[in-house]
Design a protein around this nucleic acid. Structure first.
Lengths: 188, 188
DNA sequence: GATCTCATGTAAAACGTTACATGATTTG
DNA sequence: CAAATCATGTAACGTTTTACATGAGATC
């Protein structure tokens, strides 16, 4: 069977939810999958075109009073099969992070202690802000879970839990590394 | 001042260490920066060419008995300046992970519990293997630190500590999520 | 004798980001 | 009245992966 890239599978997956348009897909990813997936319109619209060309979804135009028309995409049985088949396939590789902060820290000896500390501090702030948004997302998922009795909420909470734990570990590391750098600075 | 991409800065940084050839750069990244940076030869060799063209490093050919010749790259003062200037510049964005496992888990309701658990289990195994390699790297950095009295080892240990903490958090999450899925399976 | 390590490189394809274009309505 | 939100899309550019090419010595 034909294979597609992960961007395409991500969109197929989202089309199983209430999100049916390119715009809504972007919003869902930015708001709920943000900690493990990113996407741009430059990926979404061409991918939706491909999905329709391949018969994995069907489009229909929906008039939207006082708003631009929108195109709703609905999975076909074939599209649902392709999604399930991807879900069933094994995963070979660990995700590969690219972390600019760690890259700079790796060469930290060529930086002043002040600069190293300030980079870590701004990283810490961003991590803390991210942790707070996760808590916000968690609450909105819990609300959604109570409203609609759907199974998907459980899985969304699993992925969110991952984000929270990993972010928490990064925050702890950040705080302690800043402390170590400050001690170093005072020693020298 | 002209800017380059992170791949280029990563290579400039590595040229401050004992690694002076394309091959050695690849090895160092694979072995020591592996948890936060990846690179391929298709990036390294063109980047080294650019680095020389821009006057950031100089090449010289080194004969290597019983082995192919190698090209050693040495930073110029200008190259070192460019590196330091990049190190001093602020970081705007948090790194964006792309995690295929979490993406699949997000759509876990369309998978059997068995399959979800088996994906999590293989993820767990990979995370545990990674944690072990981190411990191996840690020991080799400690050895290096004792041999040469260099400051860089401290920063290498910082980045490694990050990798260990984050991986540990992911392992814990994995174990508990597997437990939850197993309970679900038994309930249904 | 096969595979691994050392060593450098290119070309094509795949993938992703950014900037641009359009335009109406709602909110501050 | 400016800015944000809703809504779709393209083109250019930048980045990364993958496959290929070459070849000698060392290890199993």
């Amino acid at each position: 069977m034909k294979t597609y890239n992960d961007t395409t599978y991500a969109i197929l997956g989202i089309l199983t939810t209430d999100c049916k348009t390119g715009y809504e897909i972007k919003q869902l990813i930015d708001r709920s999958l943000n900690h493990f997936w990113k996407i741009s319109y430059g990926q979404i619209y061409p991918a939706l075109k491909l999905i329709v060309d391949e018969g994995l979804a069907e489009v229909n135009n929906v008039e939207n009073e006082g708003r631009p028309d929108k195109k709703e995409y609905h999975l076909t049985p074939k599209g649902f099969d392709v999604l399930k088949q991807w879900l069933d396939s094994p995963i070979e590789q660990l995700p590969n992070e690219k972390n600019e902060i760690l890259l700079k820290l790796f060469f930290g000896q060529y930086q002043s202690h002040e600069r190293t500390i300030s980079i870590l501090q701004s990283y810490l702030e961003k991590l803390e802000a991210r942790y707070l948004t996760y808590q916000g997302i968690e609450e909105s998922i819990l609300v959604y879970k109570h409203k609609k009795q759907q199974d998907d909420a459980a899985y969304w909470l699993f992925t969110l839990d991952y984000g929270k734990r990993v972010t928490h570990a990064a925050i702890e590391w950040c705080r302690e590394t800043i402390k170590k750098c400050e001690e170093e600075r005072n020693d020298v």
